[in-house]
């Protein structure tokens, strides 16, 4: 049994925030007296990540994902529980630990705005005390994988959002971290660029064996990269396991797509008709009845093609959160 790369046990983070009513009177009152309110951002979170794993960290806005990532990268102190990353306690912020991790935030940038990325990389080279040879080698590899060649010499402000993100990611990986925290790395990017970044993350993980914890709102990112997902909501763990098991556990329905010769058939006796276009019908049926309905469809109707699918992952996730709320 190898030691986990990331280990959390009952990790908690409670924020104390000032409570404030709207209006002028309340604003004046709050100058002198503030009522504080406790917000549990992360509530007794427990999970382990093995070295080399890529895990998707999911949850709606405000679920506590970023707070957790910040604790694991040493930026925040927890209010309770334990956590280790590569055997170190992150919030002690010891240098050997910091040298082995990286944090990429899709919504913020660390590159200096007015100068070419190559010059910002140089800053990181000195900060991480990388030898010229190692630095060259890594930079060449990243340049090749991310196709950075023409971008490195342009001022960062002249790059497109996607180009900038590629440079941000490269800057964050120059020191070859063993643990990579990615917070919404593909946010705001177009589909092609998302796919590009995704492919890169997979390749980087394969080559370096780094452990990756990834949050994303794009389920395509998660489906493409992560076998395992951890779902949290209101700071609490909802699910930890295979992505396919998540689908199994949280969906009571399957989707059957049938292609018929007859465009005007009435299929409502077989299941809920979600969509019908040129004889292509999409039905929603309870999972337990899938086999039975399929059998009936094939027996009763002139079927050209038939496909049984799990609902799209977005729908599943949505269901997970609404179930929790109910």
């Amino acid at each position: 049994m190898t030691e986990p790369a990331i280990h959390l046990h009952e990790l908690c983070k409670t924020y104390r925030v000032p409570e404030r009513e709207s209006g002028m009177g309340a604003a004046l009152k709050s100058l002198f007296h503030r009522r504080m309110q406790d917000i549990k951002a992360v509530d007794r979170l427990t999970f382990d990540l093995s070295p080399g794993e890529i895990v998707g960290f999911l949850g709606p806005n405000g679920a506590g994902k970023t707070t957790t990532l910040k604790m694991l990268s040493g930026l925040l102190h927890p209010t309770g529980g334990e956590g280790t990353v590569l055997g170190s306690i992150p919030w002690k912020r010891e240098r050997p630990f910091l040298r082995q991790i990286t944090l990429v935030m899709g919504q913020r940038n660390q590159l200096v705005w007015d100068i070419p990325a190559a010059d910002s990389f140089e800053l990181n080279r000195v900060i991480y005390r990388l030898s010229s040879t190692d630095f060259r080698h890594t930079l060449n590899e990243l340049t090749e994988l991310l196709d950075l060649g023409p971008l490195l010499k342009k001022p960062v402000r002249n790059l497109s959002l996607g180009e900038r993100m590629k440079c941000e990611i490269a800057a964050a990986l120059l020191h070859r971290p063993q643990v990579v925290f990615l917070d919404e790395p593909t946010i705001g990017l177009d589909v092609t660029m998302q796919r590009r970044i995704r492919a890169f993350i997979a390749e980087y993980n394969r080559r370096s064996g780094a452990t990756v914890l990834l949050t994303s709102h794009y389920m395509a990112d998660v489906a493409a990269l992560c076998k395992r997902v951890i779902v949290i909501h209101h700071g609490r763990l909802l699910f930890d396991g295979d992505l396919s098991a998540l689908v199994q556990q949280f969906t009571a329905h399957k989707t059957i797509v049938v292609q018929l010769e007859d465009c005007h058939a009435d299929l409502h006796t077989y299941g809920e008709v979600i969509n019908c276009e040129d004889g292509r019908f999409t039905l929603r049926v309870p999972k337990a009845q899938t086999a039975h309905v399929t059998e009936r469809l094939l027996a009763d109707l002139p079927v050209i093609d038939l496909l049984v699918e799990d609902p799209p992952i977005e729908e599943v996730i949505d269901q997970v959160f609404t179930q929790e709320a109910a």
Binding site: S73, L75, R93, R95, F97, L98, R108, Q110
Partner: peptide, 13 residues
């Protein structure tokens, strides 16, 4: 204010 101090704090320096 804008939170970019996070990047400074994750540096081993």
């Amino acid at each position: 204010r804008d939170g970019t101090l996070d990047f400074t704090l994750t540096k081993p320096e």
